[in-house]
Design a protein around this nucleic acid. Structure first.
Lengths: 150, 150
DNA sequence: AATCAGGGTTCCCTCAGGGAACTCCGCCTG
DNA sequence: CAGGCGGAGTTCCCTGAGGGAACCCTGATT
């Protein structure tokens, strides 16, 4: 956990960081998403310390992003995304889009995504949920909302 | 910086985290985006340690996300988003969408975004860049790409 | 009974974050 | 022109989180 508490700030970015902002958390979600769901799989794939992995998994479970399920009569567990966690994958897909564009270099993107609806290799684009037109940094005005700090 | 180097992993998520994954970095980008562009403004608004703020700003500049510009003949500087940095705001907008939905609670979202194109208070939605249909966690197949690890 | 494998705990060490004080540099004011 | 000011860092110490390796527990399997 970061030393400063982001969860109490009147900012949805800070609050989201309070859930998945710690080092490793997004990578854990990525692995669970693509099917690495067990403790030792995660530990081996990420090279993360077992201690930190335990902490992160518990944190993500506490925040309702992951669910811990037994998959055997022995004490064996797998971690799965909740609905809340599945919607966080949006965030990862946008990170992939940015990383592919700005950081992939000569070799090209390490992973491709094929969209079921059209069958094409594609990437995400941000659209206004209201009118469907593109919605990026310069397309919006920022205004105080009902939950704003006093 | 996280102790483990994410920048060399064959994963655009890890590489993106290597640029903005440290604590505070996304909040610094948010502040710069909404117009808090000076050292003392950032320090006061975030409550971040001056030492860490210096480190973060230099890191973001090194990675081409921010630019440092003098705004006076005295040694005074402001930080502005590069094109690369501006495209990272997409990520923040998705974080806002998720945080507003899952973490805002009774009070409602702390900040609202009005879309220029339609004039409505809105939020972002992820669409396929190819066909324009929704594109979320369950709408894609993940496949190895050209830059995949051997 | 001994072994095995998954899923953690425990321990120690180092280094990053927090906080506060200090520095530097050019303008402004008396 | 000496002293003050304000922005922009830098330095110092202290605490606590991350890394690594070893250890433990539990329910099969042989």
């Amino acid at each position: 956990m970061q030393r400063t508490d982001f969860g109490t700030m009147a900012c949805s970015i800070a609050r989201t960081l309070n859930v998945i902002g710690e080092p490793w958390s997004p990578l854990i979600l990525r692995d669970v998403w693509v099917g690495l769901t067990r403790f030792d799989q995660l530990q081996a794939d990420l090279g993360i310390s077992r201690k930190v992995l335990t902490e992160r998994l518990n944190h993500l479970i506490d925040h309702g992003v992951l669910d811990r399920r037994p998959y055997d009569r022995r004490p064996r567990y797998e971690y799965v995304l909740t609905e809340k966690g599945t919607e966080l994958i949006d965030l990862l897909m946008v990170m992939v889009g940015w990383g592919d564009k700005w950081l992939a270099g000569e070799a090209g993107p390490p992973v491709l995504y094929r969209h079921h609806a059209c069958g094409e290799i594609s990437s995400v684009d941000l659209r206004c949920a209201h009118c469907g037109e593109p919605m990026h940094a310069d397309d919006v005005d920022v205004m105080a909302g009902p939950g704003a700090a006093v």
